[in-house]
Design a protein around this nucleic acid. Structure first.
Lengths: 152, 152
DNA sequence: TCGAATTAGTGGCATATGCCACTTTCGGCG
DNA sequence: CGCCGAAAGTGGCATATGCCACTAATTCGA
């Protein structure tokens, strides 16, 4: 029963499953703003940084650099963020919100608060904080597969 | 300052962030099999069901039905799963593993075990079980947004 | 100072997910 | 019966993510 009933033992599967569920909830809440949960998080991350470089954002969100580039496109296209090269290192591309983007973020934060409050009312703020702490702990683990082929 | 420190307060963002991290870890472990973590979970879910209908799988995985359809395609294309109409209700499409799919799943389970073991060795089996329990609890919540403002 | 190694991004390709608009079947109901 | 509304999937469209191969800009060592 433990394994036979749907692989409830796989930490990864369980995590993704819940992520889909919660993702839809937050997405619904943000819908009026036209932003998805991911975009909202990305805009926020940009807003709290000091014209962060793409690499810095990717690292903070534990996201692949190229994935970040892709995800950023619609936001640039819609005029919420803009990029510019770093003064000292032309390889570096920095990102910042446009006034329009800041306004959109402010708007979205109001919507986000509703979902956040609702969620914490259901599960309890304590419990939520504990869950986030555990998740952050997991995200910080230096996971490494046992060297598959030490060959040579 | 509660929000200015990187939005660590957003349950959804934290969850996705960790999902990306853990997802890559499991994906790396499964790489030799050519399967992604999601496909692995899907194959497993199919294997434990009795020729489950698409709707049943989608519900079990808390996944959108159409999303499931999309995700299933590469697996059908590669000959790991096959579908057939339900005898009594032609609207229903049932899914099952092919012998090749079962073999691939068996192969993947060995790889998965390594990642699973490794992860639990790092965070502790107890802790992992507790995390999964909490995640399942969250996934089971009947989240609902406070009736949208009829505005005006 | 020049070329190898490294770093930061980009583009292409493939899967992951969702929503919406349809189409096909069913299950009632008058 | 025959029509309507519900149920189960499909296809199209758009974003989310990753990996790989490549390019451009820097850094470093001989």
């Amino acid at each position: 029963m433990s394994e036979a009933d749907g692989f409830s033992r796989c930490n990864n599967a369980t995590l993704r499953r819940t992520a889909r569920r919660l993702g839809r909830f937050y997405d619904d809440a943000l819908a009026p703003s036209g932003l998805k949960g991911t975009q909202f998080g990305l805009l926020f991350q940009i807003s709290v940084g000091a014209d962060p470089a793409m690499g810095a954002i990717a690292e903070a969100l534990i996201m692949d650099l190229s994935a970040l580039g892709h995800t950023l496109k619609p936001l640039v296209r819609d005029g919420y963020v803009e990029t510019f090269p770093d003064k000292d290192d032309r390889r570096v591309k920095r990102v910042r919100l446009t006034p329009s983007g800041q306004a959109k973020l402010d708007e979205a934060i109001k919507l986000w608060s509703v979902a956040q409050r609702q969620f914490e009312a259901m599960i309890g703020a304590e419990q939520a904080a504990k869950l986030r702490a555990t998740l952050d702990e997991v995200a910080a683990l230096k996971l490494e597969l046992p060297a598959a082929t030490p060959s040579s």
